[in-house]
Nucleic acid binder design. Structure first.
Lengths: 342, 342
DNA sequence: CTGTTAGCGCCTTCAT
DNA sequence: ATGAAGGCGCTAACAG
């Protein structure tokens, strides 16, 4: 079944030319007689010749592929970003190699290996942030360009990246609740020291704190729940803070999935939404619209596209200066928020 | 920044051996003195040597990568399957090359190119079925093993594949409604001649018809809506069949997304669910549980895992005989179904 | 315009 | 146990 592959020499022989000419003809490079090119292409067709990519890569030093490091791409926001990135590649010669991170160990090994092993022309890292200066430095001296999406680090010696304005998002969400008249506002998010080193929850919480502070309100640290990064985790965290005597009248969730957990907790506790409790999510994934969840919308697909574009730019244009693009977010008011009952 | 890559010869020189020995030492093959191996590995470490994959591939003829052809992987079911497939690869040396299909043209070109160009050791095709015998034949004479997931074709000369029992699923959904006492049951699905040649909607509809027939009911062709493959499309299709004088008391949707469209249509028309209308979906994606949708659950992640496993089997074991594995589906009864009002 | 000649970096016999 | 040599398939530089 797997008969010997057709090589460039087979084509050359059939067309009555040399391998070099076949190479030139196929690459469409100038300096080949039109008739010759025609004969070559005919032979290619007849033999169903496909160049051996490995040989091509070895010879040219180009890989024509891009590696993407991405966590849990069943998560809707991540998969939306990935999809945006992929769509940019559709009309390019680059292949897309996916490295799906499912454990913290995988994260670490991918961060070390992928950018240094010479297998892709560029590396795109989605939603996974460098842990420390050391890791930033390691990425900077990578063998190929590295671009980050939804990933950041305060280090000055920085990498090109596309980030969401998570702090502003957390602030907007909280300010909206303040505008509605809420004063006791809780937050349900991720642990700062989560094993994958996700930073978005932390940043959104920071914005939340800023908004409270700006409003002259004390930080309600007792109202912040951290739990497993899932609906169930958010539900139990929410159950905890909603069971306190001075329960909050509103909750900011670090993402839509958690917001749904909060809604479930509210239902379990017999709290009506939005009459007894306002809930606001983050991401605006499809489900948010369906259940009428008020949320902060971030440009998921666009972030993927932009990041991939940055990477491609530096693949063709050589070294472009590092940039840090911040994408804006917006509030989408729906049915899970209302003024507090008096 | 991109200094000259370190090659196997650099390592060899530093370790005071030849390139061949380095190769053997690194591959952990026998016939290398322990002390030598140690020195080699030390040199590898010191030089941060990473073998050039392209060279390795060219030399060995193995690519250590698997190509996956997959449509719209933002769709929850597709991304769940893909995720299952990826997870199998986590502990293997294989890389995963993604070919995301976004247009019918891409579908066609990928079907022709990917399996024949010698770039991956195997090809996994998810949720995209061969269009005709010709395409089946083309896949069969591919240069590398090809495995299909959620993809099928009646052709006798078949390919190894993992399919869902969509016909049984459509039947089960319909039988459940019949059991509840419904007699006028509609169906909202995809067009048979959809451009991507998806077949699951057709098969589920077939099961639906079988169930009706078995119950001695005439085929309610007027109750079948076909629309754009989206929530909105399903909503307008549903609006049409729910506005007829003899409207159905229950609707089987070809997937959960469409079921949600049907629910929206019902709400618009002032029909209560499940009192005035029963709705049943298909897939059991996360959202189904959230909104309490009765649905048919299919093993999404498991199908991906199993398909990838089949592919790996045939990569190591050589030619295994073609199989057609059918994965079972089950009914998940939730809140959108009830006996019809009398 | 086209053929020839060297590698690209690695693996793999075949000697030693 | 190790070194030397040839080749994987292709491209690129250099002659003609």
């Amino acid at each position: 079944m797997t008969r010997k592959p057709v090589t460039i020499h087979d084509v050359a022989r059939r067309a009555g030319v040399s391998a070099g000419t076949v190479s030139r003809a196929m690459a469409g490079r100038p300096g080949v007689h039109e008739a010759t090119r025609h004969r070559v292409l005919e032979a290619v067709e007849a033999l169903r010749y496909t160049p051996n990519l490995a040989a091509q890569r070895l010879s040219t030093g180009k890989h024509l592929s891009i590696a993407v490091i991405v966590p849990f791409f069943t998560s809707a926001p991540v998969s939306a970003r990935l999809n945006g990135a992929v769509s940019v590649l559709a009309n390019s010669p680059y292949d897309l190699i996916i490295h799906s991170i499912q454990t913290p160990e995988q994260r670490d090994s991918c961060f070390q290996l992928i950018p240094h092993r010479r297998q892709a022309d560029g590396v795109l890292i989605i939603s996974l942030s460098p842990r420390d200066d050391h890791e930033v430095a390691s990425l900077r001296r990578a063998a190929v360009p590295v671009v980050l999406i939804d990933s950041d680090h305060p280090s000055v010696t920085s990498l090109p990246r596309v980030v969401m304005d998570d702090v502003a998002g957390g602030r907007k969400a909280t300010e909206y609740l303040l505008t509605l008249g809420h004063r006791r506002i809780g937050f349900v998010g991720d642990r700062t020291d989560n094993p994958f080193h996700f930073i978005w929850s932390r940043d959104r919480q920071l914005g939340y704190r800023q908004a409270l502070e700006a409003a002259g309100l004390p930080p309600y640290s007792g109202l912040c729940g951290e739990g497993e990064p899932s609906r169930a985790g958010a539900r139990s965290a929410a159950r905890a803070i909603l069971s306190t005597p001075d329960r909050p009248t509103a909750v900011v969730a670090a993402n839509d999935t958690r917001a749904i957990g909060v809604l479930e907790a509210a239902r379990e506790l017999g709290l009506r939404v939005p009459e007894d409790l306002s809930v606001i999510g983050y991401d605006d994934i499809e489900i948010a619209e369906l259940i009428g969840l008020t949320t902060i919308r971030q440009p998921l697909g666009a972030s993927g596209q932009r990041g991939m574009q940055l990477l491609l730019d530096r693949l063709v244009g050589g070294a472009v200066e590092p940039v840090r693009e911040v994408l804006p977010v917006e509030l989408v008011a729906r049915g899970t928020t209302a003024p507090p009952a008096r």
